[in-house]
């Protein structure tokens, strides 16, 4: 699905990380951990084509990301559902239109009618459908972001600190949704600081935990 081969990324002349090798196979479940500032969000952005690697090769669905034109990047993003820590909603649109936005920009508005009801029920937001993002709680926003990420039925779900702003109960609920998606065959990559979340996930699904530290990506050790 997504492969990083000997990838490095520098910003302002400073190397954030290098020699990164990562392969997200279909149906796999990965966690990405590491201290703040290690470059987890940057690594995720490389995985969905928002940033270009300074060196090395990033392949999105078999295509070299560096060789993809802007339209091709947009098309690949339709196959990757992204959940941000700050959710990234359009505050002037109601929740339903925000969740349906990936379908809207793909010219598939008609599919929204069919999918939205079930999706809102799945994330438990039926009653909030007409509300606007600023009216939602942190947990509701995260679930809405997850609903938006999966509405296109993407192959890959990438989540950046999805439980960063929610309590333990809500983080468990979000994890359950992500595990369900993985069982449906979706590839999942989650960046998180939350070791409890990782432990909870390991009890439900086979995961691979990666750690980004000292500018290198490695398999996490026995602390888990």
């Amino acid at each position: 699905m997504i492969d990083l081969d000997n990838v490095a990324y520098s910003y302002g002349g400073a190397e954030l990380f290098s020699q990164v090798r990562l392969s997200l196979a279909a149906g796999s479940f990965h966690f990405l951990t590491g201290p703040s500032g290690a470059g987890k969000t940057t690594l995720l952005k490389l995985c969905y084509g928002e940033l270009q690697a300074t060196s090395g090769q990033v392949r999105l669905f078999g295509e070299d990301a560096a060789m993809m034109d802007r339209d091709a990047v947009a098309m690949s993003r339709r196959r990757i559902g992204v959940v941000h820590q700050d959710c990234q909603f359009l505050d002037h649109l109601p929740l339903t239109e925000n969740i349906a936005l990936p379908l809207t920009v793909s010219g598939r508005e008609a599919d929204a009618e069919a999918n939205l009801g079930d999706l809102l029920g799945w994330v438990g937001l039926r009653n909030q459908a007409a509300q606007f993002p600023p009216q939602l709680s942190g947990g509701e926003r995260q679930r809405a972001a997850l609903a938006r990420a999966v509405i296109m039925s993407p192959h890959v779900i990438i989540a950046d600190e999805p439980t960063g702003n929610v309590d333990w109960e809500m983080s468990q609920r979000l994890l359950t949704l992500l595990v369900e998606l993985n069982r449906m065959g979706k590839t999942v990559l989650i960046a998180t600081h939350d070791m409890n979340l990782i432990r909870a996930a390991k009890s439900q699904v086979t995961t691979r935990v990666l750690r980004l530290k000292d500018r290198r990506l490695m398999q996490a050790g026995g602390e888990l």
Partner: peptide
């Protein structure tokens, strides 16, 4: 707004 639209796959 443009950033969000791009993230969800909007073409330029």
């Amino acid at each position: 707004v443009i950033r969000v639209m791009r993230l969800v796959g909007a073409r330029d």
